[in-house]
């Protein structure tokens, strides 16, 4: 079981790197979807207390929203607003990946430093921190609104993973509430971006700078 868990955490770290390295909308949405699927598998692998049916339901819920729902919404938004497929980063892809690795190192140090009470697997907490870092890095280093939503999603994935590995069974309902919030957020953002796209020529965040003075 430990081996499978480790494999999932390493894969989550790799999806973080591929989120940072993706140069196309399609690729970054796919990476986010894969991360969602991996997160959906975790409740099953953690072998939570409680009935199998509850775990299965939780897993299916996470998988459905993070692995299918969000990617579908994002793809739909991209198609409707006719967003150009390039990501347009402020920071180059290679440098982003290197920053992601630095994020992992910081996460490993943080995990070591915090000395958290519950350890499901040695890698879970650092994978969580790394996911949060990658998400925030995506938010600040990419031009388009949709990529910022994806960054926000990744950060939430990290928080989810952190909560899951610290207290596997306690705050499940809290997590579900957060998940619902995010769901609404992505939904609203999808509509907002759609409307912005209809009203203005582009959804480029950089254009907001011209409003400054």
């Amino acid at each position: 079981m430990q081996l499978w868990l480790d494999a999932v955490f390493v894969l989550i770290m790799l999806t973080n790197l591929s989120l940072l390295a993706a140069s196309r909308m399609r690729l970054i949405i796919r990476a986010a979807a894969i991360q969602g699927v991996l997160l959906g598998l975790l409740p099953l692998l953690f072998s939570l207390e409680g009935s199998l049916a509850a775990n299965l339901g939780f897993s299916a819920f996470v998988l459905g929203i993070k692995g299918l729902g969000f990617p579908w919404l994002l793809t739909r938004t991209c198609r409707r607003v006719r967003i150009t497929p390039e990501i347009e980063p402020y920071i180059g892809y290679n440098f982003s990946v290197i920053l992601g690795i630095v994020g992992l190192l910081v996460s490993l140090w943080l995990e070591h430093r915090l000395d958290l009470p519950v350890r499901v697997s040695g890698l879970s907490v650092s994978a969580a921190f790394m996911t949060i870092f990658s998400g925030f890095l995506l938010v600040v280093s990419r031009k388009k609104a949709v990529t910022q939503v994806i960054g926000y999603l990744a950060a939430e994935n990290g928080i989810f993973l952190f909560g899951l590995s610290l207290a596997p069974h306690g705050p499940m309902w809290l997590e579900l509430c957060v998940l619902l919030d995010i769901f609404v957020a992505v939904f609203v953002m999808g509509i907002a971006i759609h409307n912005i796209g209809r009203e203005f020529d582009s959804v480029d965040i950089g254009a907001v700078d011209s409003l400054k003075d």
Partner: peptide
């Protein structure tokens, strides 16, 4: 090509970071 090589470096760095803990 540099991206591919960066990926190779990233894989190695990931392994080093995890195993060298």
């Amino acid at each position: 090509v540099p991206q591919l090589l960066t990926a190779a470096g990233a894989f190695a760095a990931l392994a080093l970071a995890i195993l060298g803990r």
